[in-house]
């Protein structure tokens, strides 16, 4: 049995990133899309932390703190926007966001 190495973490991180991207492209509910986006950010966090651990440098971990903080701010604004849209239009589906066409 091989010990868990950097590549294992990176594969998990890559899979998470692709799952997130898949979710953003395929799902039509704004909240689910937003969750998928968070998944992509956390995939990057996982990659940063594992690189940091295996390179013996702490810079990556610090970057993760920045990303978590910024993502929290982004979610606060994003959810507020989605709620505002729901109040106005009673929907959270992207198909209904079509007032602007050519």
């Amino acid at each position: 049995m091989t010990p868990v190495g950097l590549e294992h973490f990176l594969v998990v991180s890559g899979v998470l990133f692709c799952l997130g991207l898949w979710g953003v492209i395929v799902r039509r509910n704004l909240l689910i899309m937003y969750m998928s986006l968070e998944l992509m950010l956390n995939a990057a966090n996982l990659a940063l932390v594992s690189f940091s651990r295996f390179n013996n440098r702490l810079d990556g971990q610090i970057m993760v703190f920045f990303i978590i903080t910024v993502a929290a701010a982004e979610v606060a604004v994003g959810l507020a926007l989605i709620v505002a849209l729901y109040r106005k239009k009673q929907t959270a589906h992207v198909e209904d966001l079509a007032t602007m066409k050519l």
């Binding site: 997130g20 990659a47 940063l48 940091s52 990556g60």
Partner: peptide, 16 residues
């Protein structure tokens, strides 16, 4: 947010 996720993932690889 999608583009930010790409940016961060790219930064992770550059750092790695």
């Amino acid at each position: 947010a999608l583009s930010a996720a790409f940016l961060v993932f790219g930064i992770a690889f550059i750092f790695g």
